[in-house]
């Protein structure tokens, strides 16, 4: 891998992670209720546990949030 290519890859990962962090903050505070009714009143620590996963999988959760509550 050339340095230019590596720089592009690292920039892409950084953008993904930055967007993920912003999304995850919104998700664990308000968004989580939209997709999972059980998450209402979830303690702060449990929200913190959910946070890293939301950073990693944010595009998927964004789709879930737009679609609304999950059907069991």
């Amino acid at each position: 891998m050339t340095i230019q290519l590596a720089e592009m890859l690292v920039a892409a990962i950084a953008v993904y992670a930055a967007l993920g962090t912003v999304f995850a903050l919104v998700f664990v505070t308000v968004g989580v209720r939209r997709i999972d009714p059980d998450a209402r009143g979830m303690p702060l620590r449990a929200r913190a546990v959910v946070f890293p996963g939301a950073v990693g999988l944010w595009p998927l959760l964004l789709v879930f949030m737009i679609r609304g509550e999950r059907k069991t």
């Binding site: 997709i35 999972d36 059980d38 998450a39 449990a46 546990v49 959910v50 890293p52 996963g53 950073v55 990693g56 999988l57 998927l60 879930f64 999950r70």
Partner: peptide, 17 residues
């Protein structure tokens, strides 16, 4: 390993299906 560890909570099991 990060994605697995981060989604190991039952919340993810329920919400990712």
């Amino acid at each position: 390993l990060f994605l697995m560890a981060a989604t190991s909570h039952d919340f993810w099991n329920a919400n990712l299906g």
